[in-house]
Design a binder for these strands. Sequence first.
DNA 1: CGGATTTAGATTGTCAGACGTCTGGCAACT
DNA 2: AGTTGCCAGACGTCTGACAATCTAAATCCG
Lengths: 266, 266
Amino acid sequence: MADRREMAVTPPTAARGSRRTARVSLPDACVRALTDAIERGIYPAGSPLPSENELADQLQVSRATLREALRTLEDRQLVVRRHGRGTFVSTAPIVNDLHRNFGITAMIRAAGYEPSTAGQEVTTGPAPRDAAERLGLARGETVTTLRRIRLADKRPVVLSVEVFPARLLTADDLARLSDSRQSLYGYLYAERGIAIHRGLAELTPVKAPAEIAAGLEVVRGSLLLCISQVDYDDTGKALMYSVEYHLPDWVRFTIERIGPGSAADD
Amino acid sequence: MADRREMAVTPPTAARGSRRTARVSLPDACVRALTDAIERGIYPAGSPLPSENELADQLQVSRATLREALRTLEDRQLVVRRHGRGTFVSTAPIVNDLHRNFGITAMIRAAGYEPSTAGQEVTTGPAPRDAAERLGLARGETVTTLRRIRLADKRPVVLSVEVFPARLLTADDLARLSDSRQSLYGYLYAERGIAIHRGLAELTPVKAPAEIAAGLEVVRGSLLLCISQVDYDDTGKALMYSVEYHLPDWVRFTIERIGPGSAADD
DNA sequence: CGGATTTAGATTGTCAGACGTCTGGCAACT
DNA sequence: AGTTGCCAGACGTCTGACAATCTAAATCCG
């Protein structure tokens, strides 16, 4: 009898979080718990999840509630459900679906390269116009900026700039973070109780300006794909603004598209 | 007493489609029906949907099943659910989420321009290598190719090439289609019982080659965003392959990103 | 013994009904 | 007028049951 409730989701009434935990629905809590478990490798790719009855029992929710969560996981293609057989962790070659908001390191690793970082610079100062606007900050508010070059097998492939309101993350935090080998997401959640919920990314093709070309070791004017993104928490508050300049050929940028809008095209 | 069941979803057993309709789950059928109704404007943005009980009644499914569908719609941000009040059609400015697989025409219209088409060419012949590979066809199998230039307020913004297996869609079909003012998706569904379920798109920045530059009326070597996509039905069979060359500045290419992978970044 | 068939069990899909909680409006009371 | 209490309607969750599907063991038959 393996100790259950090891994974139990917050009971309906008891909000153990301090202030106002902006209570999240039970299915959403299950989605979090299961996503987490899958990504931690507790349920490896291709393996079956426990049956719905067992899972509902472990998470201490009803089967209907659990099924809502599973539906979301299925929509996100994290699991596959087979009638009469069970629910399985997806083995789909998660090529690189931009719809999933994973970090560059994970992206490099998923592509089969060894990730590393170079030329890291942390600066603190007043927010530049674009960042302030996208983060919803007053002009001149202090932000922490992290500029890095990401390498795949020692080859520069991405130049990234990440901007945080200083009140969320200071240069000190970043120093502590790079020591602790923790994920940025994990750090924000553990230390600040802040969870990134979604992001809105914008894609544009650009020609490399001189400074960026130098960092990526390509000639000026080379083709790059620029991904600028704002991340939000579950209340819709902007947490982080980032700009990434990607070499176009080191990985395939793919998107799973759902739909169609059936009344859509001409 | 407004006649209900006007919207009823396929009853569990009766598969009215001919061969094997590759039966789709009831929640998915509800998703389709509701998405359709919303996009047809039956439920305008901001308006409340009928209550879950009513909807379940109209669609002739249980409330649990309906709720699974609503959950998917909520995940896709088509509706917003408010405890104690109701479910409302999302008013969010659906900027242009690449995650949603709507056609170029809808995209242009959503951006506030008047869509039109120019330079349409339909050809029939053996599949070129890339198309055959992506559609899973034998080398040399016949395909129908549709090449168009899309205009927003009379300005060329996209050059698109769409390739279909001739057994699915012939040049005649396309001619009939452009007469009937019907959607391509709608035509496939109505005439062939085929529903496009999802697509996988790949994005690459490119410099315009001469021929494409001419079509889009830009200078050779201009920056373009190339979106090449394969669309699949719900069994995973490839139906259509398309390549679109977009001017980078006529609209913002955005993606809603979910997650994060909590154990993701470095 | 070997192969085909049947059967039992496990698991997901769907349903019907019930109760809790939240919201907003209206009436009664201060 | 302002507050309070009540109530109807809506979503959130739970329970138990049955149907459909798949696997694999058990059975039957040649």
